[in-house]
């Protein structure tokens, strides 16, 4: 079956909106890494009084869908109050682009992560909000909720690919995935899960087993 980008994706890739860096931003966040093939930085300026995002920019190291999703989420967030902008989902962003190929859905997740990350930083640093980032099954599951299985473009929790989440007293984590050992996405999933779980500052060793 032909895999192709929608016209909307191509449009945003060719002429992306809000490209660049904001000098002295109110908040910024970077998600992904060049090693994974995509990295996105989102910069924000927020109006203190109204909490409206008055300026948003991004810089991307990534493929066409990475650039296009970054362009669309910055469009969607611009002019919204941060509480509303936080609610934008990766699914909405993908829909706004007329859809993304399953293998590219993770780009939309990355874009939303970067946006939410920037907002969270704003809330932390400018509004003094405190976040509980402790390690537990729910918080791990929440992270895994954002890991997309490239074959079908759906997250691994919804697909019930996660069979077990274990945390021991040393904060070592065991994730059991119901996946064939020859699955071509297994390395990508392992990489993605590890990267996400490493966001927990106190996490120990991460073991991912295929069952």
């Amino acid at each position: 079956m032909a895999i192709k980008y929608t016209k909307k994706v191509i449009e945003h890739f060719q002429n992306p909106h809000n490209v660049g860096k904001i000098e002295n931003p109110d908040a910024m966040a970077t998600e992904g890494s060049p090693a994974c093939g995509d990295q996105l930085s989102v910069y924000l300026k927020v109006d203190k009084k109204s909490q409206i995002i008055k300026e948003i920019k991004f810089q991307s190291y990534g493929c066409a869908s990475n650039i296009a999703t970054a362009s669309i989420i910055t469009d969607m967030a611009l002019g919204k109050i941060i509480e509303e902008a936080k609610k934008i989902t990766w699914k909405q962003a993908a829909d706004k682009l007329g859809g993304l190929p399953p293998i590219k859905m993770h780009c939309s997740v990355l874009a939303i992560d970067a946006l939410r990350g920037a907002i969270k930083n704003y809330e932390k640093n400018k509004l003094g909000k405190k976040f509980d980032e402790s390690l537990n099954k729910q918080s791990i599951e929440k992270q895994l909720n954002e890991v997309i299985y490239g074959k079908v473009g759906v997250d691994i929790i919804s697909l019930r690919l996660v069979k077990y989440i274990g945390i021991d007293e040393k904060n070592n984590v065991l994730i059991e995935l119901s996946l064939n050992k020859e699955d071509q996405f297994k390395d990508d999933l392992k990489h993605e899960i590890t990267e996400r779980l490493n966001r927990f500052p106190k996490i120990g060793k991460i073991k991912i087993a295929l069952v």
């Binding site: 093939g37 493929c63 490239g150």
Partner: peptide
């Protein structure tokens, strides 16, 4: 690039 490969590798 991984972004162009079938297994994202």
């Amino acid at each position: 690039s991984a972004c162009y490969s079938q297994g994202l590798k």
